[in-house]
Design a protein around this nucleic acid. Sequence first.
DNA 1: ACAGAAAGTGAACTGGGGCTCACCTTGCAA
DNA 2: TTGCAAGGTGAGCCCCAGTTCACTTTCTGT
Lengths: 205, 205
Amino acid sequence: MVHVVKVRSDAARNRARILEVARDLIGREGSGVSMDAIAAEAGVAVGTLYRHHPTKAALVEAVIGHSLDQLAEATVAATARVGQGAPAGEEAARLFALVARRYAVDRAVKEAAASMGAYSPVTAYGPDIVLPADSPELRAWEAIQDLLAAAQREGSVRADLTPADLMALLAGVPASGVPDRVRDRYIDVVLAGMRAPADPPDAGP
Amino acid sequence: MVHVVKVRSDAARNRARILEVARDLIGREGSGVSMDAIAAEAGVAVGTLYRHHPTKAALVEAVIGHSLDQLAEATVAATARVGQGAPAGEEAARLFALVARRYAVDRAVKEAAASMGAYSPVTAYGPDIVLPADSPELRAWEAIQDLLAAAQREGSVRADLTPADLMALLAGVPASGVPDRVRDRYIDVVLAGMRAPADPPDAGP
DNA sequence: ACAGAAAGTGAACTGGGGCTCACCTTGCAA
DNA sequence: TTGCAAGGTGAGCCCCAGTTCACTTTCTGT
């Protein structure tokens, strides 16, 4: 006879509040914020943080996972629209801008994207984590590959960009401490660069 | 009677070696390296580091200053060539690529460039330092303004970019842990984006 | 209402990094 | 050769951040 012990209400409340606060602080200040700061902001003792998340890395991972899921959803949706005939270039541009804007708001995700250096499908926190098959992130990765390939076939994105390049370039867009309008200009510049052919002088298929 | 005390030979040797090692380590790993690490690598005790540089920030500043001087020189030279009739767009592109490549090799300089956020002429270390009038950095800043303006007049660079935008965008080019060839592609993308017109017609994200 | 398990608490431990300083070593001028 | 100030040394102090755990409080099934 298996007892499914119900979660105590205060525990659930704290778990939620901690995640909420962590998302806010880590998103705004990056993974550098101290556990003490998060605990204080959540009106909770550090020990409670550790009851819910065994380590700081785990907490950051939980926070990132949330953002990643949202991006994954948007990515899959965009790719699906392309599959139904939407122009790949436009969908790609819209999605890339969305991702870049998210990076601007979510420093931890940006750090993760930047640290993936490239060459491994996404990363949660630090370069040592491998994705489980069938995770939302993995599906998003596949969707991004498809979307990028479609846009490239269509000629609206440079052919020599890999998905990893894409992530790295978007993560590179300066965003912290920059007014929204300026940041959008930066995004525009980078997207324009990805669109342009590989250079007038000696290019040509 | 003023005694101009000669510097002791061992002191001079150590001073040079410390700067050499600091340039290497701070350049490769960023300003995060510990003083202990630098001291060890230089074959010297921490105290000696502090004899020559009162604080870690001062050491980092010294290291950055060196790179900055070189970039300043290149900038002034490029602007001078434009003054003598060289095409501004080409000179600008060459210089920007040089700067971006330097950022790739010199993380501390990149950090500084990124942290200038914008809106203040250059920064040595941290956003709180104001440039002395007539420093090489200040002259370089003026040279960059001229060069950028010339390129924009010529139509080879988007008109809505400020010098600060330029620095920020170049600093954003992903470079750490990336093979040279890939890094050059990133630079190419960003430069292309700066070149392209702001897409006055429709389209664009 | 109550027991006891789950959850919460926060002082204290750990480790790392910047920096100091009381005490040696050494280059070099006399 | 020698005196001594400039220079070098490194153990140790301080502070900060992650983590632990013995103890207290709170929730909930009975």
